[in-house]
Amino acid sequence: MESVILQIAARHMRPLLIILSLVVLYRGHNEPGGGFIGGLMLGAAYILYAMAFGVAKTQNRFVFSPLNLTALGLLIAVVSGIPALFAGDTFMTGEWITLFADTVAELKLGTPLIFDVGVYLAVAGMLMLVMFSIMEE
């Protein structure tokens, strides 16, 4: 099915959805959001694209196949547990650093965020993997 309206919409929606998914990912630690929902949004961006342009063309845009993306996400999630070991805590303990403290741009970064990035990639990859194989039928 070729629809010009859908194609134009998908082309413009994709970057917006990706940025939004990153925002949702970042705010997830203290507010509604997080890796899972962000991952769903990232996946949705590419599924919309695949609906408009077809699965083959969408997959050409990837450096990483969806399955590899899932695997990478899992790996990042595991790695996020390791910094705690260097700090002398148990595996998976949350370790935090604050950048630019006491300024407007105060930025709190920690291992739970890395874990969330892992979830984000894994969910997005899995969603695309499932949807693409259904759409290819």
Binding site: L67, N68, T70, A71, L72, L74, L75, V78
Partner: peptide, 9 residues
């Protein structure tokens, strides 16, 4: 888990 990830790649 790590082995599984490497085997997927």
């Amino acid at each position: 888990l790590v082995f599984m990830v490497l085997l997927i790649f």
